[in-house]
């Protein structure tokens, strides 16, 4: 009887300990970086939740009800999926649209927009639009909203709908840095 009791106590104790143990601490295997620092293993599969390239495209051109889909459609598939609805949206926003300052008609302009990628030049000036260069990147100081408004509402000469082509917020409220990490320190 005594031995059984000891046995039972042991069983209960282990049950108790098992119940009480915190979640096992994940044993992480360490690998080494090029600089010799130990790094953790990064396993697992990551699945797309959100994406972005040019500013405010989803906000301006994607119809409500399609925003989730747009956020998870691969750029290579965006053109065929969204060009026509973008064109309809453009003409709804600006029924008088003919062409814009880039000389693009509605179909051509929305074909460019619907494949939402940001083109960046590796050979010189990078800017959304600086009067000379167009869509060669996006710097922090670019007034991208005004550029988009101008292309949507401004007509071929950029002179149409003057109340809609400038939000009158032309610069950031804190100066950017000339060197890395370029963005201003937080408020």
């Amino acid at each position: 009887m005594k031995s059984i009791k000891i046995l039972l106590t042991a069983t209960c104790l282990s049950v108790f300990l098992f119940n009480c143990s915190e979640d096992d601490v994940n044993d992480r295997n360490f690998a080494t970086s090029p600089e010799g620092e130990p790094i953790e293993q990064f396993d697992g599969t990551y699945t797309l939740e959100d994406q972005m390239a040019r500013p405010a495209i989803n906000t301006v051109f994607v119809n409500s009800g399609s925003k989730d889909t747009f956020n998870t459609t691969l750029p290579a598939d965006m053109g065929s999926a969204f060009q026509s609805s973008f064109e309809a949206k453009l003409l709804a926003l600006n029924p008088g649209y003919t062409t814009n300052a880039l000389g693009l008609d509605a179909a051509t302009f929305t074909t460019v927009l619907a494949t939402d990628v940001l083109t960046v030049s590796l050979d010189g000036t990078t800017t959304f639009f600086d009067g000379t260069n167009v869509l060669t990147g996006r710097t922090l100081a670019d007034d991208v909203i005004n550029v988009e408004l101008l292309l949507i509402f401004g007509g071929p000469m950029g002179a149409d709908n003057p109340g809609l082509t400038n939000d009158n917020v032309d610069a950031n409220d804190k100066p950017f840095l000339n060197s890395f990490p370029y963005l201003a320190s937080p408020w």
Binding site: Y46, T47, E49, Q51, A53, L118, T119, S121, L122, D123
Partner: peptide, 15 residues
Amino acid sequence: GGSGSINTWVESKRK
């Protein structure tokens, strides 16, 4: 790629 142009976009992906 050194020169020319690239197209770029950013994604958030969840494990």
